[in-house]
Write a protein that binds this DNA or RNA. Structure first.
Ligand code: SF4
Ligand code: SF4
Lengths: 137, 137
DNA sequence: ATAAAATACTACAACAAAGTAGCATATAAA
DNA sequence: TTTATATGCTACTTTGTTGTAGTATTTTAT
C-alpha cells in the first residue's frame, strides 16, 4: 500500500460518513459497517476529532459528525492530517534534499509525477469519492 | 518515503555502481561511499545478486558487478525485484479489488496517477539517473 | 441520583521493517 | 598449504506500526 493503514482507514471512514453527511455516526455503527478493528478505529476517530473535519460528541447518544462539508474536504488534507503529506512527497532515492546544482536526471520526471499525484489528491474531495460508491458499503 | 528503505538503498547502490558500470565493486567500497548500514547493505547486495542485474564474486578480490547494462535496467524492475511493484500499485482506500460496477469516483484519476508513476519508473534507467549526478557521490 | 450508552485515555501485545553481530564459506596470492 | 580478504548465512535486537484490553470520563434518560 502506498499510504499507511491508518490513513487508508481514515479515508474509508470519512468517505462512509460522507454518504449521509449531516448524520451523527456512533463509533459502533461505523465499526459494524466497515471492516476496521474496533479499538484501533476509536483511536483514529479521536485523532480525527482533533482535526477540522469532524467533531465528537461524548456521552450517551454521542458520536461523530462533520463540522465541515465533505465538498470541501480533500484527500490531501486527510493524508496530511493523519501522516503528514511530506511522508509521501520525498525523493525516490531517499535523499533529504539535493541542491539545484546536483539534481539527478530523475528529478524532473519524479517531481512531475509527485505533482500529478498531489494534484489528484488535492482535487478529490470526499463528495467526489462517494459518487458511484453505493455498492461499496 | 513512498518506497521502502530497502528499495531506496537498492536504487542508490545500483545508481552508484552505474557511474563506472564495468568496475567490480566490493561491498566495503560501496559502504564507504554511500551512507548505508554495513550489514544491512550486505544483505541487500546478496539479494540483488540473485536478481538479473548484478552478480557477486566471492573470495578474495571479490565484489559485485553488473551482468546487464545499466542502460537497460529500469527503476520499475528494481522496485519489483526488491519489494514487488504491486505493493505500490494498490487502491488508495486499501480495498483489494472493486468490481467494475462499484468503482468509485476516485478510481479513474487514481488509476491514471498510478499509470503515470509506473511510466516514469519503467522509463527511467540507471543510466538515465546518473547523468548530471557527479556531485552526488 | 442513578444507570445506560457513548467517547477518551493509557498501557500493553503482536507484527513487520530496519539494523546488528558472529560465524561459515569461498578464493586468490604468497 | 596457509593467510588475508572477500561474500553468504542465520539468529538476534531495535524500532515503528498496527491491533487489543481495561478503565476513566462524559452525558442523557429515567
Ligand atoms: S535530484 Fe534526484 S536524488 Fe536529488 S532529490 Fe531530486 S530525485 Fe532525489
Ligand atoms: S474503485 Fe475506488 S475503492 Fe475501488 S479500487 Fe478503485 S479507487 Fe479503490
Amino acid at each position: 500500500m502506498i499510504f499507511s493503514k491508518t490513513t487508508e482507514y481514515a479515508i474509508r471512514i470519512l468517505t462512509y460518513m460522507a454518504t449521509d453527511y449531516e448524520k451523527l455516526y456512533s463509533a459502533k455503527s461505523i465499526v459494524d459497517k466497515l471492516n476496521i478493528p474496533n479499538k484501533y478505529m476509536r483511536r483514529i476517530m479521536t485523532n480525527l476529532s482533533k482535526s477540522n473535519f469532524i467533531m465528537s460528541i461524548q456521552g450517551r447518544d454521542g458520536g461523530y459528525k462533520f463540522i465541515k462539508s465533505p465538498d470541501n474536504i480533500y484527500l490531501a488534507e486527510i493524508i496530511d492530517s493523519v501522516d503528514g503529506i511530506d511522508k509521501y512527497m520525498g525523493c525516490v532515492l531517499g535523499f533529504n534534499e539535493c541542491s539545484p546544482k546536483s539534481t539527478c536526471a530523475m528529478h524532473k520526471s519524479w517531481t512531475e509525477t509527485k505533482e500529478k499525484l498531489y494534484n489528484t489528491l488535492s482535487k478529490t474531495s470526499l463528495s467526489n469519492l462517494i459518487k458511484n460508491t453505493i455498492d461499496k458499503f
